[in-house]
Simulated scan of single mutants.
Amino acid sequence: MADEQTNRAAFRKQEQYCITMDAPITARICAGLAESLDRETRTGARALDWPGDPTADALPLRTVGGLHALDLSGKDTELSRLFAGAVTDPAEVIHILRASFAAHDDALCPWLDGPPQTNEPGRSAGLMVGMIEIVRRFGQPIELLEIGSSAGLNLLMDRYRFDLGGTLAGPADSPVTIRPEWRGSPPPALPVGFASTRGVDVQPIDATDPAAAERLRAYVWADNPERLGRLTAGIEMQRAAPVQLEDGDAADWLDARLAEPQADGVTRVLMHSVVWQYLGAERQARITAAMEAAGAKATRARPLGWVRFEPDRGLNPRQEIWVRSWPGGGDFVKLAHSQAHGAWVEMF
């Protein structure tokens, strides 16, 4: 049952997440939305009467995404001042937001229809930490399988350049260099080569489609212009050479990929980032069982790895990088923490 106070509180909770993640502009907008939403517009009424769990449904991010798309369109100069960080007075923030909803209700309301579409290339830094560990155990090249690929931007990790605390990986002439703030010791300097990269998503996004690209850009927080530049460059890389991204169920697709022949000397690796929580218990169990069954048949000549970049199960708004591999069995080993968008990585 809809509860207005719960729905307003979700925007305040998102404000706190944004503060923790050093995103003061987006935090300020979320705080303003908690106070400015009303039933004078369809968008405001839908948000206040949201029937589901507003946090699980990412209601605040849906709303901010619509506003950011309006900002990027250049159609609301006052709103653009807010997204540029030029407005800090809470009363003025509320006034601008109410005016924007009143003037652009028809454009903003559809942004509540679907979940945010975020595909963050910066997460590839944490994922590359996992790949280096897999290479340390078994060597290269890697046959990369990604579930929950979204727009496939992390499938470009074989084409990105990485600077991981001074450890360099990837092509030196890449148009994208991913260089997070580094905490702790860097990973070992090992070459990481890829035999192939393939992915699946239940609703894959064609990042080369202008409308899809606009939607992806809208969900990049205004506090992070470097993320927007990286996203744009990644889209151009896909236009130059598309990734192998399929439409399908993650568990079904993985079953099919694991059943394919694996070449000697190639390490097969399952990878995913910020997707596990959305799969549901049944798919999680199927994927785990499939990996363990395939792992039981793995050999030194045909090894299997699993690299996860998923949320901390505690209260911290950060991600954890875990690795598991076969042969050798054993449980997952946690290698590092990361900011959700890859702004920093902290090795253990």
Rank of each mutant, 00 (worst) to 15 (best):
E4M: 09
Q5C: 11
A9T: 03
A10Y: 00
F11R: 00
R12M: 07
Y17E: 12
Y17H: 13
M21W: 05
G32D: 04
S36Q: 12
G44L: 09
W50V: 02
D57S: 13
A58Y: 11
R62T: 08
G65K: 05
G65A: 09
D71L: 00
K75S: 15
K75F: 09
D76M: 04
F83A: 06
A84T: 06
A86G: 11
A86S: 14
A86Y: 07
H95R: 15
I96R: 04
F101P: 03
A102F: 05
L108R: 02
C109M: 13
C109W: 10
W111E: 05
W111D: 03
L112K: 08
E120N: 08
V129M: 11
F138M: 03
G139S: 06
Q140D: 12
S150K: 01
S150T: 05
L155M: 04
D163T: 10
L164N: 04
L168S: 07
L168Y: 02
A169I: 08
P171Y: 08
S174M: 11
T177N: 05
T177W: 06
P180F: 14
W182C: 10
P188I: 09
A195L: 05
A195N: 03
T197F: 05
G199V: 09
Q203W: 11
D206V: 03
A211E: 15
E214A: 15
R215I: 01
P225T: 08
R227T: 05
G234V: 03
D247M: 07
D249H: 07
L254Y: 07
L258N: 03
Q262T: 01
Q262D: 03
A263Y: 01
D264Q: 11
V266S: 06
T267M: 05
V274S: 00
W276Q: 04
Q277P: 00
A285R: 12
A285Q: 12
R286Y: 02
A289N: 08
A289G: 07
E292T: 06
A293F: 01
K297S: 13
L304F: 10
G305L: 11
V307A: 09
P311Q: 13
D312A: 12
R318N: 12
R324H: 09
G329S: 12
D331R: 12
D331T: 14
V333F: 13
L335W: 03
A340F: 10
H341E: 11
E346H: 13
